[in-house]
Amino acid sequence: MVGNIGVDQIKKRGGKLSDILGEQQELFQQFQSIHMQKIGEFGELCDRHVKNLGAIKCCRREAIIGEARKLVDYVEKRVAEETVHVNTQEAQDGVQSSLLSLLFS
């Protein structure tokens, strides 16, 4: 009979379907396990990236502070040089003025 499927064939096909379903469930569990592992690895990479960004930010801040200190040192040196120059010029002007007053007195 073409239209009638025997009970043994139904059990056989049911067993095959059950085996296929079991394989699919096993593959899905493996996929889930691998997926969770990859998510964990991605999380670790993100944490490392954030740490590296923090280190870069800290180094950049230190470099900026270092440059600012150099500029402040340079400005202080220039101010000191100008102050000495002005004081020296004032002293010379004072001496000349004193000498001139001695000559004309």
Score class of each variant (00 low, 15 high):
residue 16 K to I: 08
residue 83 T to K: 14
residue 90 E to L: 08
residue 65 I to N: 00
residue 32 Q to G: 12
residue 8 D to F: 00
residue 76 E to V: 07
residue 13 R to D: 04
residue 32 Q to R: 11
residue 48 R to E: 13
residue 73 D to A: 15
residue 54 G to L: 02
residue 41 E to A: 04
residue 30 Q to H: 14
residue 16 K to L: 06
residue 94 G to C: 14
residue 29 Q to K: 14
residue 101 S to H: 14
residue 103 L to V: 13
residue 23 E to K: 12
residue 19 D to P: 02
residue 5 I to W: 01
residue 7 V to Y: 00
residue 34 I to L: 15
residue 67 E to T: 14
residue 3 G to Y: 00
residue 43 G to I: 04
residue 48 R to I: 06
residue 69 R to M: 13
residue 73 D to R: 13
residue 58 C to K: 08
residue 31 F to S: 14
residue 6 G to D: 03
residue 6 G to F: 01
residue 22 G to E: 12
residue 92 Q to W: 00
residue 22 G to D: 05
residue 44 E to G: 02
residue 21 L to Y: 07
residue 91 A to F: 11
residue 45 L to E: 11
residue 17 L to F: 07
residue 34 I to C: 04
residue 80 A to T: 12
residue 62 E to K: 05
residue 5 I to V: 11
residue 65 I to R: 05
residue 86 V to I: 09
residue 91 A to T: 04
residue 19 D to I: 12
residue 28 F to V: 08
residue 35 H to L: 15
residue 84 V to S: 11
residue 24 Q to D: 09
residue 92 Q to P: 01
residue 34 I to A: 15
residue 31 F to W: 13
residue 101 S to P: 01
residue 72 V to M: 04
residue 56 I to V: 07
residue 48 R to D: 10
residue 21 L to C: 03
residue 10 I to W: 00
residue 102 L to N: 08
residue 55 A to P: 02
residue 105 S to V: 07
residue 25 Q to E: 07
residue 21 L to M: 06
residue 74 Y to N: 13
residue 89 Q to A: 10
residue 42 F to M: 07
residue 50 V to K: 06
residue 95 V to R: 03
residue 88 T to C: 10
residue 35 H to F: 15
residue 62 E to G: 04
residue 34 I to Q: 14
residue 19 D to N: 10
residue 81 E to D: 15
residue 37 Q to S: 13
residue 49 H to R: 10
residue 59 C to G: 07
residue 53 L to D: 03
residue 83 T to W: 02
residue 76 E to G: 10
residue 63 A to V: 00
residue 83 T to N: 04
residue 66 G to P: 03
residue 61 R to Y: 04
residue 74 Y to W: 06
residue 61 R to E: 05
residue 10 I to Y: 01
residue 44 E to P: 01
residue 48 R to H: 11
residue 20 I to A: 05
residue 64 I to T: 10
residue 68 A to M: 15
residue 4 N to C: 00
residue 13 R to V: 06
residue 79 V to C: 05
residue 1 M to R: 00
residue 95 V to A: 08
residue 29 Q to S: 12
residue 41 E to G: 09
residue 13 R to I: 03
residue 17 L to W: 01
residue 42 F to V: 13
residue 103 L to A: 14
residue 101 S to D: 11
residue 27 L to D: 08
residue 93 D to Q: 04
residue 24 Q to M: 06
residue 1 M to H: 03
residue 67 E to H: 05
residue 66 G to M: 12
residue 16 K to D: 07
residue 64 I to F: 05
residue 55 A to W: 06
residue 38 K to S: 02
residue 103 L to H: 15
residue 46 C to L: 11
residue 57 K to L: 08
residue 43 G to Y: 00
residue 30 Q to A: 09
residue 2 V to I: 10
residue 42 F to H: 12
residue 84 V to A: 15
residue 62 E to W: 00
residue 57 K to H: 07
residue 105 S to H: 15
residue 20 I to E: 13
residue 45 L to S: 11
residue 64 I to K: 05
residue 22 G to P: 02
residue 34 I to E: 15
residue 75 V to N: 03
residue 100 L to A: 11
residue 97 S to A: 14
residue 11 K to P: 00
residue 90 E to N: 07
residue 103 L to N: 15
residue 103 L to W: 12
residue 42 F to D: 04
residue 105 S to E: 15
residue 45 L to Q: 09
residue 30 Q to E: 15
residue 76 E to T: 02
residue 67 E to C: 00
residue 89 Q to D: 05
